[in-house]
Design a binder for these strands. Structure first.
Lengths: 217, 217
DNA sequence: TATAGCAATATTGTATACATTTATGATAAT
DNA sequence: ATTATCATAAATGTATACAATATTGCTATA
C-alpha cells in the first residue's frame, strides 16, 4: 500500500474501530477525502483494502458500508480460528526452531511480569505480546495458506474487545495456556499443543459470547 | 464491481488462467489498458480484486505480479479445504432443506448422465455441476465466515487443473462421493458426511500431487 | 574490466475533471 | 391524500493529466 492509501486506510479503520462510523454507515468518498486529506483515488484504494479485510462491504454503484457482524458470525470466527490455530501448532511442533521457542518464553515472561504488578492489568501490553506470540507460531507452521487465511479471519477489533473484558484471573489463565503450549512444543507433542490451543481459543469465544449474548449487535 | 472493472478483471484473469501471463509475470498497467480497452482506474481496481483473489501479488511502487504457487502451497490448500469442507457438511447435515437435497440429487444425476455417455468425459459439465454441488453445501452450512474463507482458498485454476487430469473412472469415483454425501445428509449424520467429504478432497489432493510431484512449479 | 554514479526512461502513485448512475424531492394527476 | 413522474442533486464510475518513484543503461573512474 502506498503512502496516501495507507494514511486513508488507517484513518478510516480507526474511525470504524472507535465507533465513529458505526456498522451500516454509508462511507461517502467525498467526506473521506476531506477527513483524510488525500484525493479520491487513494481513498478508493483504501476502501477496497478495507473490503478485503472485512471492515466494509461494497455495493455496486451505491458505495461502501461499514460491515455488520452478528454474534453468530463472531462465534463462527472463533470456532474456525480454534481449528486453524490447532493445525498451526501441530505443524509448529514439527518445525519450530529453538530460537523461536526462546522468543515465546520471553513473551510469556513479559506478560507474567505485567500480571504480577499491582493495579489494573495493562491490557495493551497483553494485546501486543499475545499477538506476537500467535504470530511466531503461525510463522513456524510454515504454511502461506494457513497464515493468509488466519490473517483474514482474525479481526483485530474482536480480539481487542474480548481482551478488554478479561479479568486479571482470566488473563492469567490465558498466559498459563501459553506456557502449556510452549511445553508441548518443547516436547514436540503436536497433539498436546493442538489440544491446549483449542482450549485457549474456545475460552476466548465463551468469554465473548457470555459478555455479549444479551446485547445482539 | 462496475462494468469496466469487471471487463478488465475477466480479461486479465483469463489470460492468467490460459497461460498468457505465466506466474511471475509483471503486469504493467499500461499494457493492460490497451488489452482491456478501459482506462487505468478500472484496471487498477481489477488488479486489486485479483490480488484479494490471490491471482496476483502486489509490491509497493513496483506493481503487480502473477502469483506463483508452489506444490507445497497447493498441498496446504487442499488440506485446509478438506478440513473446512468437512465442517461445512457437518453443519449442512443439521440445517439443509429438502429442496437443497433435491438439488444435490439433480446435480448428481446430471454428472452421472454425462459420465454414462460415450466418448471423452465432458469435464466442463463436471466443473460447473461440481461447483454448484459444493456451493449448495456451503450455503446450507449457514456460516458467512466459512463461506468467505472457502471462497478465498478455493482457487478455480487448481480445481480446473486437477479435474482435467481426471480419468472417467476418477470422475465416477468423485460422483460416487457426492452420492455418499447426499445419503449422509438425508440420514442427518454429520460425522459420516464429514468423513466422506474428507476422503473426497484428499483424493483430489493425491491426484494433484501425483500428477505434478516431479514437475515443481 | 568492474563498479559507482548519474541521467534518461518507464512505471506506479496521486489528483482532478468528466460521465454515468442512483437517490431525493417537488409537482401533478388520480 | 397518495402515487407516479420527472427534474435536480449527489454519489459513484471512468478517464486522464501530473507527480513521485523505481528501473535501466550509459559514462566515467578506479
Amino acid at each position: 500500500m502506498s503512502k496516501a492509501t495507507e494514511k486513508a486506510y488507517t484513518i478510516i479503520r480507526e474511525n470504524i474501530l472507535n465507533g465513529g462510523y458505526p456498522p451500516g454507515t454509508h462511507l461517502k468518498e467525498g467526506e473521506l477525502v476531506e477527513k483524510c486529506g488525500v484525493s479520491r483515488t487513494p481513498v478508493r484504494d483504501a476502501l477496497r483494502q478495507l473490503a478485503t479485510d472485512r471492515y466494509v462491504v461494497t455495493h455496486r454503484n451505491q458505495g461502501v458500508f461499514v460491515n455488520q457482524w452478528t454474534v453468530d458470525d463472531i462465534k463462527d470466527i472463533f470456532e474456525l480460528r480454534s481449528i486453524l490455530e490447532s493445525i498451526v501448532v501441530e505443524r509448529a511442533a514439527i518445525h519450530i526452531s529453538s530460537d523461536d521457542v526462546a522468543n515465546l518464553k520471553a513473551i510469556h515472561l513479559k506478560i507474567q511480569t505485567m500480571l504480577d504488578q499491582n493495579g489494573p492489568p495493562k491490557v495493551e501490553v497483553f494485546l501486543v505480546e499475545n499477538k506476537a506470540f500467535h504470530q511466531i507460531l503461525i510463522s513456524a507452521a510454515n504454511s502461506r495458506t494457513l497464515a493468509d487465511t488466519l490473517a483474514q479471519i482474525v479481526q483485530p477489533p474482536l480480539i481487542a474487545q474480548t481482551a478488554r473484558q478479561y479479568t486479571r484471573q482470566e488473563l492469567q489463565r490465558s498466559n498459563d495456556h501459553h506456557l502449556d503450549i510452549i511445553n508441548a512444543l518443547e516436547a514436540k507433542d503436536g497433539a498436546w499443543a493442538a489440544s491446549v490451543m483449542k482450549t485457549h481459543i474456545i475460552s476466548a469465544q465463551r468469554k465473548f459470547v457470555n459478555t455479549y449474548k444479551d446485547e445482539e449487535t
